[in-house]
Design a protein around this nucleic acid. Sequence first.
RNA 1: GCCACAGUAGCUCAGGGGUAGAGCACCCGAUUCGUAAUCGGGCGGUCGUGAGUUCAAAUCUCACCUGUGGCUCCA
Length: 638
Amino acid sequence: MLTLRLPDGATREAPEGALPREIVASIGSRLLRDAIAVEVDGEVLDLTTPLRKGGAFRVLTEKDAESLSVLRHSGAHILATAVRRLRPDAKIGFGPSIEDGFYYDFEVEEPFTPEDLEKFEAEMRKVIAEKFSFVREEVSQPEAQKRFADDPLKLERLGEFSSDEIISTYTDGPFVDLCRGPHVPDTGYLKHFKLLHTAGAYWRGDERRQMLQRIYATAWFRKEDLEAHLHRLEEAKRRDHRALSQLLDLYSTDARVGPGLILWHPKGAIVRNEIENYERALILRHGYELVYTPHIVSEKLFQISGHLENFKEGMFGAMDVDGAAYRPKPMNCPGHICIYQSRQRSYRDLPIRYAEFGAVYRYERSGVLHGMMRVRGFTQDDAHVFCTLEQVPAEIERLMDLCDEMLRTFGYPYTIELATRPEKALGSPELWKQAEATLADVLTKRGQAYEMDEGGGAFYGPKLDFKLIDAIGRKWQGPTVQLDFNLPERFGLEYTGADNAAHRPIMLHRVLVGSMERFVGGLIEHFAGAFPLWLAPEQVRVIPIADDFREFAASVVRRLKARGARAHLDDRSETLNYRIRDGETMKVPYMAVVGKREAEADSIALRVRGAGKKQEILTVADFTARVEDELATRALVP
RNA sequence: GCCACAGUAGCUCAGGGGUAGAGCACCCGAUUCGUAAUCGGGCGGUCGUGAGUUCAAAUCUCACCUGUGGCUCCA
């Protein structure tokens, strides 16, 4: 007999092999109707999987997060059912649930078209209407081989089962799949879903294997959730930095320059320059020294650093300079190291913190390029701290303060991940343990919550990753801090200790924005192009109602400029409505409208971006003071 | 790099073997306006590039370039 503990503390006895459905039914018929699956001892099972062990027993309904992935996984089977009906030649790959939905991979002679997708979706609705039960069977290897005789991809997977593993299949109507489960009781449970797009995907994620056709879909229990999700997709599209940059004239690329290389237009350059000016002042205050290093360097430097050995295919090719090979730098660290080594260093000099806005060039494969987010040339706000092992905790503290201050300025909430030793790693496991513990200690001492990213560290050391959360809840790579045991060793970095002996310093790599290009791209999407005042390329647009007030408007512009604001006069021969609409479209934070009343009172009628007709009347003096204050504090307004 | 899709005026897009279209933007003129598009006129394209099929190609074929969605990769 198995003992099941219910959440309310009650226990049930059930014979081994009993079906969860029976247990749930014994608790209540209403509950049985709502049940999607059960969780026994931490494992999610469907209602028809025989119980093999007891433990904590919980019924999962639509309200439980785990249920969604069960539904989505079943959705994948329903998709495959529909595809197999319409395209019997399709060989089935894998079809898991993923964040927000599911996909299924098929191997087909003729790739799917968008019209196919519509047909599949219609066919899925039929499968759903037929309410096929998901029937689980546990079968022997030979039986499984027989069932999937026509599916080479499934046979390959079957071949990997060890003899003690249970092989299970799930059947819904005409479709049988090799599958661990769990599933919803029948196909009728899938109600609110949408096929989204097709894509190529390598079989088993291996680029040496054949490419399958993947169909992506989203699925939810409630119609509102589906609609909200589709709305989020729309919202993300609306915020796309590529389209907004076109509208706002921030950057472009040009086939003549080459893909993945960004041309910053004047307005984009203003945003970037504001960030750089801010960050420069910030890091000087936090104890950094600015340096500059060349864009091309002898490739010998990268032989020493190991980049050539490990990332050669990510580096641009060598150019011949007087018989020596030079390369565009993919990293700034070797240059900073050379500065460190330009003279003898004492323990009294440490920590040394070098910072540079360094342009780096990396060869990215053509298919991965994406707007400003993934490019071949970008500027890193890179810094390297050289310190003793004992100084590491204090330096990490300092870095966390720095990151926190910066992210608050931009208005990003964030989470932190501690990434630990990967499989392929340099340095002894003990050293790693110690370094990981040091990072964890600092986090704990600060009361900073963090998640573990096991095995996510760089090969040369563990790291802290800051993940930004943007205005629509998406996560972005933010600042990172990495410990490095490798480069100090490779370059033979030294400092003279108090004991007059040579010691090896520790190196910390850190970036705040990371890639300036990617960060600005992210900001555009975060703010949907409506930058806060201090970042906005055009901060105030002054609009005279008629030509008679042109001179007064010009004086308002002059006075704003004197306070350091980017103000422009819009005295075009267009209607007031036209110019206001244009200002809103271009997402100008403030429009100052002036007519007879304002000219007489030395005031403006202030239209705040997004506030519509609701206007404020204030004197020019008050307005310029307000703007000056908001600029000085980098306020996240309007 | 791989799979699929796309590329027509500065932008957004229609057309789809027989004379290249619209709206916006831009230029000119009129209009001088109280909070999201005033009116009229004009300029603007070897239909991504190159080959091929055809009496005829923006349209069909192929190659290449660029972009988009994924896969793979991301020091």
